[in-house]
Amino acid sequence: MAASSLDILPPVGAPAARSLRDAGYSSLRELADADRAELSRLHGVGPKALRLIEEALKEHGLALR
């Protein structure tokens, strides 16, 4: 069975992906309702990564808080 796009992190770049995984986020589903300000404090998670995460969540009717 193929993983759905909710089961993986969006393509945010290696530093951001590492920081997200280190913070306990291993899938887009786990980012739903995460605190935007908290994510922005993670290494590598800048405006572009946040935009990509928000766009991916929006495709599924989900959002950051």
Rank of each mutant, 00 (worst) to 15 (best):
A2P: 05
A2S: 06
A2K: 04
A3W: 03
S4D: 03
S4G: 14
S5F: 14
S5Q: 14
S5C: 12
L6G: 04
L6A: 09
L6R: 13
I8S: 08
L9P: 13
L9N: 01
L9V: 06
P10W: 10
P11N: 14
P11L: 09
V12T: 08
V12M: 07
V12L: 05
G13Q: 12
G13W: 10
G13N: 09
G13I: 02
G13R: 13
A14F: 12
P15W: 05
P15L: 03
A16N: 08
A16Y: 14
A16D: 04
A17Q: 15
A17C: 05
R18Y: 06
L20S: 01
L20E: 02
R21V: 02
R21W: 06
R21G: 08
R21K: 09
D22T: 14
D22F: 10
A23Q: 03
A23C: 00
A23H: 00
G24D: 01
G24H: 02
Y25Q: 12
Y25L: 06
S26E: 11
L28G: 00
L28E: 04
L28H: 10
R29K: 12
E30F: 00
E30D: 13
E30T: 13
E30V: 07
L31N: 04
L31E: 10
A32I: 11
A32M: 08
A34V: 06
A34C: 12
D35A: 06
D35F: 01
D35K: 05
R36M: 03
A37W: 00
A37M: 04
E38S: 07
L39M: 11
L39G: 03
L39V: 09
S40E: 04
S40V: 02
S40T: 04
S40Q: 01
R41A: 15
R41G: 13
R41D: 00
R41S: 08
L42M: 12
L42A: 08
L42C: 01
H43A: 15
H43L: 14
H43P: 13
V45T: 10
V45Y: 05
P47K: 09
P47Q: 14
K48M: 08
K48N: 12
A49M: 12
L50K: 03
L50W: 11
L50Q: 07
L50C: 06
L50I: 15
R51Y: 12
L52Q: 10
L52W: 01
L52V: 09
L52H: 09
E54P: 05
E55I: 09
E55H: 06
A56H: 03
L57P: 11
L57H: 13
L57A: 02
L57W: 14
K58Q: 08
K58P: 05
K58A: 14
E59S: 14
E59D: 07
H60C: 07
H60L: 01
H60D: 07
L62R: 07
A63H: 11
L64I: 07
L64S: 00
R65A: 12
